[in-house]
Design a protein around this nucleic acid. Structure first.
Lengths: 230, 230
DNA sequence: GTATAAGTGTGATATAAATTACATCTTTGC
DNA sequence: GCAAAGATGTAATTTATATCACACTTATAC
């Protein structure tokens, strides 16, 4: 065996699911796996295009979006290191990307052939179980956000989004938000102007502090209240 | 072996996933499986309660709801024959019901012990793969709805909901909607009065016809247009 | 380094939809 | 069969937020 033959085996960025695989399975995974680097703004894949791969984020941040009405995009979420994208494509009937993915910074991913991944799942129930567990953990994250958005008014939705970024995406405070106000607007389903106004309100009442793209949440309690009460 | 020992084996309502299980696995499933009948309006399980079971709908319709702000409920969807409820509870960290479930008519379900189900998944990758496939098929159904709701105005959201009921829930036209206008409102995140007004509009422009709980979609094209354009 | 584009802040106005209020109409229990 | 509760229809008013309009500020290109 040559150097490089242990790519997946030696990988420092294994997901929890892949961590339980033995050497044989890792070699199988590796066969259908190819690594690629993307720069800020580059498209990983495009909604509607034929999808033959599951995409694993080794490192970085990726914006997921869907085309809405009148050309307006809807931002679904921001995924980060350790996430699997396009994993719902394991469903037999689906053969194309459900959303588009764009790198928000230097991002490193693995393209894993759908067939390799499927074979692994079918032959290794423990792996499949880990994958199922991952799927739910990941989805619940923004399912909650979508559900709340149905009932909430704008300030509540924006509070929700900011807390989502702080707690689930960047997990630090302050954090550098790689979305502009238009994108924030299309994440919570409003207009750019309204986002600007509500950010100003939050700033004026000392709940947050902003500088360029950096957001600093000063009063998380208040923000939680706004998130819950509207 | 006595009569009744083949409950799961002989079951006429097997899911696609369970259909691929062999006799041994079916006996294992059966050990953790108990059947229960619910009448209209009865609670299958309550949001927040400890969840030890996956619930399979053998037959009937079930309304899934979550508590929102100010006591107002949010209706998530209507599930029917063949659906697994609480399946996201397979995720390790979750130990309680994420939503409440209420029977909308005479409904027959199986309560399957989480542990039995987990064991099956772990020991049978092919089964796990089928379950994953099911999960996505089911979730995409209303994920789409939630995503669209972020951008859409009321008529669009109601059109969306009606088409969802016709195509994915009742799969017939006319259909008997087992939700009242208040419930419809909390499905699309609006007020009861607005639902009443928009239904009237749809009726007046000959798009639908209603009588008691029965909805008859006359002009599906128009409804699709409204769903897409707002 | 200037020009062009992209992003942001903020006011005035228009509009969709919530709220309030009440009149039916329908079901359910006794 | 009647009262009480639940569901629906419809109007008037209020409120949140979209849209329009424009100033200003910051990146990006040539």
């Amino acid at each position: 065996m040559e150097i490089g033959d242990f790519k997946c085996f030696d990988c420092k960025f294994k997901s929890d699911a892949v961590s339980i695989l033995n050497e044989t399975d890792l070699l199988k995974l590796q066969e259908g796996c190819s690594q690629t680097a993307f720069r800020k703004g580059e498209l990983l894949f495009k909604e509607g295009a034929p999808a033959k791969h599951i995409v694993y984020i080794r490192n970085g941040f990726v914006k997921l979006s869907k085309q809405g009405i009148g050309g307006k995009d809807i931002i679904l979420s921001v995924s980060k290191t350790g996430a699997y994208l396009n994993i719902h494509n394991l469903q037999r009937k689906r053969n194309d990307y459900y959303f588009s993915a764009v790198a928000l910074c230097e991002t490193n991913v693995c393209f894993i052939e759908k067939e390799s991944f499927e074979k692994l799942l079918k032959n290794n129930g423990a792996f499949a179980y880990e994958v199922i567990s991952y799927i739910f953990e990941d989805e619940m994250n923004y399912f909650d956000r979508l559900v709340n958005n149905v009932q909430q008014q704008l300030p509540g939705r924006l509070a929700n989004a900011l807390l989502y970024f702080k707690n689930h995406v960047y997990t630090e405070n302050p954090f550098n938000l790689s979305l502009n106000q238009s994108e924030l607007a299309s994440l919570i389903g409003t207009s750019r102007e309204s986002v600007s106004r509500i950010i100003k309100e939050f700033r004026d009442s000392g709940i947050i502090q902003t500088e360029e793209n950096q957001f600093y949440i000063l009063d998380e309690m208040r923000l939680e209240e706004i998130k819950l009460k509207g």
